[in-house]
Design a protein around this nucleic acid. Structure first.
Lengths: 230, 230
DNA sequence: TAGTGGTCTAGACCACTCA
DNA sequence: GAGTGGTCTAGACCACTAT
């Protein structure tokens, strides 16, 4: 009895052929049935291996058209987006949190568009600072729908809104964006950096089905880098 | 004969239960066999549905431990990283390319570390500008291993190194990082922006097995945003 | 030790799409 | 119309790990 061929080994073999140039860009590769015969496994095993490569952008598959090596592969990079506190702890630093401001204010247009909410509607507006080893790590500028269930009982003095939302709302739909912005005077004071310093900025908006939940801008202290493997 | 249950519909039902709060954070959900019985499908169909949710960070699965809703879900965001020219075309703009400088120089430490190459080794150093509708889009500062096969025949006056590498080298291993940096005087002149303007900066390094290939910094013109759905 | 997810198989039918 | 990938099924065995 042979030990069974795993989909991982089929995938590794496919990668080997891609890297060795046996399967060249633009060319069609053998179909699933043929690879299954050649490698001595079931077609579904080949399917799983190649499906994942296609999802990663390393192959293109079409019914009847077969599987091809793309001429211009679209690489995909995946970032993990943990809770800020856990991110700081993962760096071996001691996380801190300070609420700077909290008020109910009319929702600005940009945030309204991102959440698909009504501009001018009264939203809870928070400004907070996350600290790593007592040094500024990231400023959080957040707008929260006051109709979010359970919001009344939340105390954002001690618990980051980031964490409260993760534990108390149900994800549905969202968008995220990366940009570079210049530090405003207030942000510069919070983050202890020069005014107009370049800040990596992450914008996130979240909805639960039809209901807008929250829009947030995270301004990371100068020098912050977000990294991942390809 | 009933129409078959698809893994997508099982996944949708699981998401519905998560959003409806039927499956709450920290709680264990029914095991695969039970869900399969309940939904009237094969266990492998349930497995595929839940496996993808676990990969997305919405569930945690462990053998014998069962499947749970994580207390602190780690969201994952995936960005597509196309060739710059295709990115510009996808925006409905006309792409342009200008080579600014090309020389062989000793590899700086930062790039050497990123590629795991020897600092000071002679590398090909390119500085180029990508244009969208004749306006500066992105500056490309690239270091290429001169021992990369086929490099002699490449003409970077007319063809972006970005594209040449995609078509002529085989991917193996790489890293990518995002940051915000201030425009140097030279970058400000190229990108037609103020000196010290905040620039979204993407750093990428690529290796093919044991061999370092290229390290590149892309400086996007002010205002550039990178977006994706969650 | 026993329960649960991870995976393989062999066969089947369907959906898309190319010629 | 026919070839290819997409998926479902039923059953099986294995690997991990909680108890």
């Amino acid at each position: 009895m042979r030990s069974p061929i795993t989909w991982q080994s089929v995938q590794a073999e496919a990668l080997r052929r891609l890297r060795a140039g046996l399967w060249t860009p633009g060319a069609r590769i053998p179909d699933e049935a043929e690879l299954a015969r050649e490698l001595g496994c079931a077609r579904s095993t080949v399917n799983r291996a190649l499906r994942e490569l296609a999802a990663a952008g390393l192959l293109e598959r079409r019914r009847k058209g077969g599987t091809r090596v793309p001429l211009t592969p679209v690489r995909k990079a995946t970032f993990e987006i943990p809770i800020i506190r856990l991110d700081i702890e993962a760096r071996g630093q001691c996380p801190g949190y300070r609420l700077i401001r909290q008020a109910t204010e009319p929702l600005p247009k940009a945030e309204a568009r991102a959440m698909r909410a009504d501009p001018g509607a009264p939203f809870l507006h928070l400004l907070a600072l996350h600290l790593a080893d007592d040094r500024p790590f990231c400023a959080e500028d957040r707008w929260i729908n006051p109709e979010t269930p359970g919001l009344d009982g939340a105390d954002f003095e001690t618990l980051s809104a980031n964490e409260w939302l993760v534990g108390n709302t149900l994800f549905s739909d969202g968008a995220i964006g990366f940009a570079a912005t210049a530090a405003t005077p207030e942000l510069a004071a919070l983050l202890d950096c020069a005014p107009d310093a370049p800040l990596l900025t992450i914008t996130r908006s979240t909805r639960a089905g039809p209901r807008p939940i929250t829009a947030v801008r995270l301004f990371y202290a100068p020098g912050h880098r977000l990294e991942t493997r390809l």
